[in-house]
């Protein structure tokens, strides 16, 4: 074999390797791979968020929604159900089933989904299958099974706190199964701290005062959620104020409430929206302008 032919073979191999790497990278980001057989990203409907997510949430993948306080569970449930409703609404294969797996610890608070509220929120209550195993191990097994079921539109796995058993291995398993089946898998973590997980994104949901209503002076207006994208494996993070439109089944940007408008930061360059008001925010020492190299690393 002459040297030139060897060179050519090496080039071909290198090109192939590059192609594989690109493919793997694309798959990692949950993007569509040319043909339409792969899962399309799920746009939230709010332009800034979708732009940050490169078009939307990876549909076949695990995403975590957490609420820092127990009373935020309403807002977090609203966000998770909104994503599930969007997943059904935009699904091209006609999948409409949602499986809601809940850890028994979440029942201690005594709350459960209310079908009339679901219907007003834009979800068909009869599409929900509620799974309530007797222990966390059973719940994790059920979530694994549901994540691997290609006939589902979405899986919501509700847990409370940070149970040790639901560790990074368990989340990675969920992530892999969801990626294979194309199911939108969501972990809804009530009053939980940030922890390492294999989820593609992690969202913190806080509730915000609703906007003034023209017709009702003291009336409760449309809901507003302060969404913080705390972690994004494939891109930037950010913080947005969103509202949910049940009729269109989409999120949209909400104008900040006039009373809750915060004063602008003293340092205009000090932009770190993700960690802006969370407990572990960096102190005021110095300025961190870019920590982007941290975001790609699997922690």
């Amino acid at each position: 074999m002459s040297l030139s032919r060897l060179q050519t073979a090496t080039d071909i191999l290198k090109a192939r390797t590059r192609a594989y790497e690109a493919q793997a990278y694309q798959a990692h980001r949950g993007m569509a791979l040319g043909d339409g057989s792969e899962a399309q990203p799920l746009p939230l409907g709010a332009s800034a968020v979708d732009h940050c997510l490169d078009g939307g949430l990876a549909c076949g993948g695990l995403h975590e929604v957490r609420s820092p306080l127990a009373r935020d569970i309403g807002a977090a449930t609203g966000f998770a159900l909104g994503l599930a409703a969007r997943a059904i609404h935009t699904d091209r294969m006609g999948r409409s089933g949602i499986v809601w797996v809940s850890d028994p610890a979440t029942r201690v608070d005594g709350g459960g989904l209310f079908p009339a509220g679901l219907a007003q929120y834009g979800l068909d209550p009869s599409s929900m299958t509620m799974v309530e195993p007797g222990d966390l191990q059973g719940a994790m097994w059920a979530a694994d099974e549901a994540a691997g079921c290609a006939g589902l539109a979405a899986l919501v796995f509700q847990i409370k706190g940070n149970p040790a058993r639901f560790d990074i291995t368990a989340t990675r398993r969920l992530m892999l199964r969801a990626r294979q089946s194309g199911v939108l898998a969501l972990t809804l973590r009530q009053s939980g701290e940030e922890e390492a997980s294999a989820a593609a994104t992690r969202w913190r949901v806080n509730t915000k005062p609703s906007g003034a209503d023209d017709t009702l002076e003291r009336g409760v207006g449309a809901m507003r959620l302060l969404l913080t994208l705390e972690r994004n494996r494939a891109g930037r993070t950010g913080q947005w104020l969103l509202a949910w439109n049940p009729r269109d089944r989409s999120f949209h940007h909400a104008a900040p409430h006039p009373a809750s408008r915060t004063k602008p930061s003293a340092h205009p360059l000090d932009r770190l929206p993700a960690s802006a008001d969370r407990p572990g925010a960096p102190g005021q020492m110095g300025q961190v302008l870019d920590r982007r190299q941290d975001f790609g690393r699997a922690s």
Partner: peptide
């Protein structure tokens, strides 16, 4: 929206 998402038992 007049009905809540979460109802206490």
């Amino acid at each position: 929206i007049t009905r809540p998402l979460i109802l206490f038992d």
